[in-house]
């Protein structure tokens, strides 16, 4: 298959990668950039675990071609924290007990981030709605929703 060099901007860093036209974004992140925080649980766009943000919008990286997101702002879970300083959502997920096996967590947090940017003060039902495409097998979602509500509160008070 024909390969070409393409440039990407991931977590504020520029990368040039030799890609094939059929390479997915999740493959680019996981296999070529070593950013394995983004997970693949179904490979078919059904579960949300591969969610990353492209220009601030949540997209399913398993069902998105890398070639389509060249030069866009890609943000994945590794770009959310700054060294030891965690994003409010990450803190809230830890504190609320919203993580069990942790496989869905990165996608869940990325979806929540985009949601809170669009709606900084959601109701519980709006959070449920917003996370409807992200499947978790372990938690029953109660503490995930608690965490997102908690993070919304922190962020609206000026937290990071």
């Amino acid at each position: 298959m024909k390969k070409e060099i393409a440039s990407f901007k991931v977590n504020d860093r520029a990368h040039e990668v030799l890609i094939t036209p059929n390479m997915t974004l999740s493959e680019l992140l996981r296999e070529h950039l070593g950013l394995t925080g983004t997970k693949n649980a179904c490979g078919a766009g059904e579960c949300g675990s591969c969610t990353v943000l492209v220009d601030g919008k949540p997209i399913l990286s398993c069902s998105t071609l890398a070639i389509a997101v060249q030069d866009k702002e890609i943000l994945c879970i590794e770009g959310l924290s700054r060294g030891p300083e965690l994003h409010s959502l990450q803190e809230a997920f830890i504190d609320a007990g919203a993580i069990q096996c942790g496989f869905c967590t990165p996608g869940m947090i990325m979806t929540a981030k985009a949601m809170l940017e669009g709606n900084p003060n959601p109701t519980r039902d709006q959070v449920k709605e917003g996370l409807g495409g992200n499947i978790c097998r372990c938690t029953g979602y109660v503490k995930i929703i608690d965490a997102v509500m908690g993070a919304a509160d922190t962020l609206s008070k000026g937290g990071k």
């Binding site: 924290s81 830890i94 990165p106």
Partner: peptide
């Protein structure tokens, strides 16, 4: 208290086998 390795799982640094 936070569960074991919660921090790693929240930051995407927890390595599962596929990683």
């Amino acid at each position: 208290v936070p569960r074991w390795r919660a921090h790693d799982k929240a930051t995407g640094t927890a390595k599962f086998l596929a990683d």
